[in-house]
Nucleic acid binder design. Structure first.
Lengths: 231, 231
DNA sequence: GTTAATTGTGTCACTGAGACACAAAGATAA
DNA sequence: TTATCTTTGTGTCTCAGTGACACAATTAAC
């Protein structure tokens, strides 16, 4: 932008965006917000913005703050995806965007979203028919790929679930992320190998035997497995 | 994004650094350069600098360009590690640094490095006794952890080797990265499962049977395995 | 020739995912 | 009540790939 004293180089515009995922009705969804200003006004974009160096201790804070503005809750999981840069991705000029991907429980985040009309959950298929700003469609695909990979070897998908959940719900989330069926037996084996979940009591499900409820034990690290599920 | 004008926020200083690894004498090494200016003048730091938006098509180019200035060759492997940000990491103020990690063959990169005195290969143990600038020690440890993880499930460590190499050399590289012994049999099994290497002819090694030489097949993608090596 | 060192092969045990059968428990309808 | 349907949970077999280790093959040094 304006010339700066510290270097001979123009400092590119730096922003932080997030790809927030959840699973609703056995379908993987992404949170998008409608742009209120140029460029790409009216198009759907990833939630994000500039670092406010007075309140954001680090870029993680920026991502969390921007997500909370839209959903009213902090996501259960947040991790860096990639930093995108270049001249072609924003008509205003050279830009650098640090992108996070995040997971949240649908029930907690959706109550607030449904009251506004500039933010909504979008399924992956809808990305082809909605007008998406910048290179955000490409970024979302990249994030989806990464989430898929992660789901193969970790328990991270539990962060798409509410505090209490059943194995059946976990199975649905996993299948939505992977796009293919998973054996319940495999999930159960992993749950007690990971040793990060505990049973509580019971709960009724649509027709059929009552399912155990699980919740995440307090203060546990996410476990990675040595073997992947099959691709 | 936000409805604010672009210039409402102070844009933090943005830089690109790289953690370039190689293996020399069965030991994992990192390329460091001596700082010629304040802050941390005289300390050792990761090679990097500012994006030159006139010549760097993207941040990848910046990382490659800066590494080539120091080693005279492009690294065989380059991937984003993490973007670090905050007020505490640079005395000059709020900073954002996109860090890559990279791999190169020792023989190709070292010829040039040995002619200069402001760049050198540093072993992981030396990090404790050398003065390291900024939070770069922490970043290097992070990169090493990531490389270790990657070595468990991919063939990426071959990029620490010259064009032609033996299984024994590959074994050494892997053991230097993982910090623990690996069965030769396991490596051989993975080499022909991956199907990205081909034998060429023969070559003598320090006392003992002649070892086959391998090289990477042209235009192959790096293979990931479904199972990790043991931690 | 003998020995030492390294490369390469054969094979057994173990672990965890995939697959599938089947039992258990509740809902619904006759 | 009984029969049927649905979902949950268990038992178990197969299969693939790693770890471990024994052993054969090949070359250098003495």
């Amino acid at each position: 932008m304006s010339g700066n004293k510290d270097s001979d180089f123009k400092n590119p515009l730096f922003t932080v965006d997030s790809v927030l995922f959840t699973v609703i009705d056995k379908e993987l969804k992404v949170l998008l917000v409608k742009r209120a200003s140029e460029p790409y006004i009216g198009c759907w974009a990833l939630p994000g913005g500039f670092i406010d160096i007075d309140i954001d201790h680090s870029a993680d804070m920026t991502a969390l703050r921007k997500l909370k503005e839209k959903t009213n809750v902090a996501p259960q999981y947040l991790e860096q995806l990639h930093t995108y840069s270049g001249l072609a991705r924003d008509p205003r000029g050279y830009s650098v965007t640090l992108v996070y991907y995040a997971l949240t429980s649908a029930v907690e985040a959706s109550t607030h979203i449904e009251t506004v009309d500039d933010a909504k959950w979008v399924s992956i298929e809808e990305l082809d028919i909605l007008p998406i700003a910048f290179d955000h469609k490409h970024i979302i695909e990249h994030a989806q790929q990464r989430l898929k990979q992660k789901a193969l070897y970790s328990m991270v998908p539990i962060f798409c679930l509410p505090e209490l959940f059943t194995i059946g719900q976990f199975k649905s989330v996993l299948e939505a992320i992977l796009g293919k069926p998973v054996q319940r037996k495999t999930i159960i084996r992993r749950i007690d190998a990971a040793d990060i979940l505990e049973k509580v009591d019971e709960k009724i499900k649509s027709g059929g035997r009552l399912a155990h409820l699980y919740k995440v034990k307090p203060n546990v690290d996410i476990v990675n497995f040595e073997r992947n599920l099959s691709y």
